[in-house]
């Protein structure tokens, strides 16, 4: 835990206000360099970065129980129907409401199937199970111009798999063995520009 006292233009404040996005690879290049430069020499802010994963897990406890989308949709449909009957509604609403009924189910199937497929494929490719044993998550960025083959070879060589990404700044979430040597070895691979563990500690 940092004991930093917040002050305007304080480097620690600037860094810590950006850390959650840094950990997700969502900063632009200038901000990312700024955070990296500060982290390089600030153990307090390094500890704050390490706390990002436990923070996320802590906040997960506040996740509300899931409510039914279908119940919500049914409630909203009633309201939509009521508002459609009210004067002053646009003329296409009654027509659209006419679509309700058995045909909707078929239409929905047609709409859902093709749209859901890309997500399913993406999931299948990206959510490769980690090798057995303890794993950690890390953030990785590749050097511009790296080939897919080089990236794949580097990840395979160290048993790392991509969990998600790319983020807007081009970083990927990685899962790999919870072994500092693996992290160091992967970081040394040619296509790797940046590799940071997202774990508090092992």
């Amino acid at each position: 835990m940092s004991t930093v006292i917040p002050m305007e233009h304080d480097e620690h404040v600037i860094t810590q206000s950006l850390l959650p996005w840094y950990a997700r690879g969502q900063l632009d290049d200038a901000e990312m360099r700024e955070v990296q430069a500060h982290l390089a020499h600030c153990p307090a802010c390094q500890a704050e970065l390490a706390a990002e994963r436990p923070m996320r897990r802590l906040l997960d406890l506040a996740t509300p129980p899931t409510t039914s989308a279908e119940a919500g949709l049914a409630r909203l449909r009633k309201r939509m129907a009521a508002e459609a009957r009210a004067p002053g509604r646009r003329s296409w609403i009654p027509w659209a409401l006419g679509l309700q009924g058995a045909a909707i189910a078929g239409l929905l199937g047609l709409v859902l199937l093709p749209t859901l497929q890309p997500a399913a494929v993406f999931h299948g490719l990206s959510a490769a199970p980690a090798a057995h044993g303890a794993t950690v998550e890390a953030l990785i960025m590749f050097k511009p111009g790296s080939t897919e083959a080089a990236v794949r070879a580097a990840l395979l060589a160290h048993g790392a798999s991509i969990v998600s990404g790319p983020t807007e700044s081009g970083a990927y979430h990685l899962r790999l063995a919870a072994d500092p040597a693996v992290l160091t070895a992967l970081r040394a691979e040619a296509p790797v520009a940046l590799l940071e563990s997202l774990e508090a500690r092992k």
Binding site: T67, L73, L76, I93, W95, A96, Q100, I104, V111, L112
Partner: peptide, 16 residues
Amino acid sequence: HGRRADFDTLYRLYHP
């Protein structure tokens, strides 16, 4: 275009 099926799909995506 007033397509309820599309709305329903978007609703299900965004509800959670």
